[in-house]
């Protein structure tokens, strides 16, 4: 059932819900100066699902996932992440919880001064310190194969295409075997074919690594390929929530402007 402003936002299609909630956000607020970006956001991410957060540019989608990993500090509300209140933890505890999260940045955010191999090694050698060199090499090879790139180990990020950079960035995000994946506009700036490939990759990562994901996007092709459930943000609020079929059948003008 689609839930827009007038209806109850708590109803979600039952078959998509599993018992475990990995992220539980309640009444989240975030402002930048006088600009209120998130006014009152509440949402849940269930185990094993792909939750797509849809919305216009500037609707606060990226701010939302940056609040989840505490790259930004929320002004109000609570974020329960894997059983911990994110707002109240810091230091080692925050690092521990961040190890369980993979984050794919909009720009890829590969380290410019490092080769692909060094980029992939970077989190691994710092978090899993007991790994031997052979095990590290094996892990790097494995994630590269999983994202469909095997022969780019010694290349610099500047030598890669946009799609390849996204794949390497995705490989770096999954190298620590995360429980949750957060994708910040994964297909932005890519051609339609590569965008579809990245969307397929998101599904394949979910299948192989048994992750649950929040995908921030305004790319409807990506939504169609990846979404188990969709939440639409508008003017700092959850405007609508439902399945892809429900969104596509909606006659709400704002939703229609995305889907038709």
């Amino acid at each position: 059932m689609i839930n827009s402003q007038e209806t109850n936002t708590d109803t979600i299609s039952d078959e998509k819900i599993t018992s475990e909630v990995l992220i539980d956000i309640k009444n989240l607020k975030k402002s930048f100066g006088r600009l209120e970006v998130l006014k009152d956001i509440s949402l849940k991410l269930h185990n094993g699902e792909n939750l797509v957060v849809l919305g216009k540019s500037g609707s606060g989608k990226s701010v939302l996932i940056k609040c989840i990993v505490r790259l930004l500090n929320p002004d109000g509300g609570t974020i329960n992440l894997l059983g911990k209140e994110v707002n109240s933890i810091k230091g080692k505890e925050l690092s521990k919880i961040r190890e369980k999260i993979g984050f794919l940045f909009q720009s890829g955010a590969l380290y410019d001064s490092m080769t692909v191999k060094q980029n992939l090694e970077f989190p691994l050698v710092r978090i899993k310190k007991d790994l031997k060199e052979a095990e590290i090499d094996h892990k790097i090879k494995e994630v590269l194969e999983n994202v469909g790139l095997a022969d780019v180990l010694e290349k610099m990020p500047s030598q890669l295409s946009g799609g390849m950079r996204k794949r390497i960035s995705l490989a770096r995000s999954i190298i620590l075997d995360p429980v949750i994946m957060l994708y910040d506009e994964p297909t932005t700036g890519l051609d339609p074919v590569t965008s579809d490939e990245i969307s397929e990759l998101i599904n394949s990562v979910q299948e192989k690594y048994k992750t649950s994901s929040i995908i921030i996007t305004h790319d409807i092709a990506c939504v169609r390929l990846t979404a188990d459930r969709i939440i639409m943000l508008h003017e700092g609020h959850v405007y609508a929530e439902g399945t892809l079929e429900e969104f596509e059948a909606s006659d709400d003008p704002l939703i229609m402007s995305f889907f038709k």
Binding site: L71, F105, S107, Y111, P123, R126, I127
Partner: peptide, 21 residues
């Protein structure tokens, strides 16, 4: 310039998210 460009391209954020200080 180097750290500024890392900040702009979210590389510093990426480092922080991957639990590296």
């Amino acid at each position: 310039a180097e750290l500024g460009s890392m900040k702009v391209t979210e590389q510093i954020d990426a480092m922080e998210v991957s639990a590296t200080n």
